[in-house]
Simulated scan of single mutants.
Amino acid sequence: MPTYRIRAATTDDIDGARAVMLDTVYRDFGTGYVPRWHGDIIDPECFYLAPPRHTLLVAIDERDGAVAATAALDARGPAHPPNPRRLAERYPSGETAQLRRVYVRPEHRRRGLARRLVAELLEFAQADGGYRSVYLHANPDSPGAMDLWRSLGKVVCDERDGVLGGGTGIVHFEIPTA
């Protein structure tokens, strides 16, 4: 069984992290790269490594040094549009730690990596001291995502039914910080 080292990403990890992220949006989401949604994937240094209140974590497979999983946090709340206005108001930028890009390569799934990465992100948010809530949106087509997020938080908006926001299919969660 492989062992993993979880740590903050460095510039040396960017290509591996980007590959995990792009593979996920193509394979699991079926959307491929969409610039207005995925700009952070192309330039993770600018979005996650440079700003002091942001981070990108990687899980490194110690057998070969490859990036097996990613997870990021930033201070940008959900924007309206495309998200419902009430979510943008409830989770304002600067006060909201938004979890992003919690992605695990298929061959490394079911080993607790996503849960471990999220635990590290929550510690990062608590240490910051300026975040009052933790928010994320999830694509329900991502294998294992809904079970993970339901076990860690609560659904605050489910757009799969078409009633809110035009039925984008996204599920929004709040994760307790303590």
Rank of each mutant, 00 (worst) to 15 (best):
G167I: 01
A71F: 07
I170K: 00
S93R: 04
L117A: 05
P143H: 08
L136S: 10
G39F: 07
G65T: 04
D147N: 12
V156R: 00
Y26R: 15
A88W: 08
L87S: 11
R111I: 01
A68E: 00
G77M: 09
G129L: 02
E120M: 07
L22G: 01
Q98D: 09
V102D: 10
L164G: 04
Y103Q: 11
V155G: 03
L122D: 01
P92V: 03
K154V: 14
L136H: 03
R53T: 06
T11E: 14
A127N: 05
E62I: 11
A66L: 10
Y4Q: 08
A71M: 08
L56C: 08
R110H: 10
D74I: 00
D40F: 09
G39T: 10
F124Y: 06
C46F: 11
I170E: 02
V118F: 09
E62C: 13
Y26L: 13
G39P: 07
I60Q: 03
V102P: 14
G130N: 03
R109Y: 03
R115E: 14
V155A: 05
D64W: 03
Y48L: 01
H108D: 06
R110A: 08
R132V: 12
Y91G: 11
H172S: 05
K154C: 12
R110F: 05
D12A: 15
V171I: 12
V20R: 00
A125S: 06
D74C: 14
A9T: 04
R116N: 10
T70G: 00
G162I: 02
T168Q: 02
E159G: 01
D161Y: 05
E95Y: 08
P44W: 00
E107H: 10
I41N: 01
R53P: 05
E159D: 05
V20I: 09
P78C: 15
D13S: 02
L22W: 02
A8Y: 10
D28R: 06
R63S: 12
R150W: 08
A119M: 09
V58R: 05
S133Y: 06
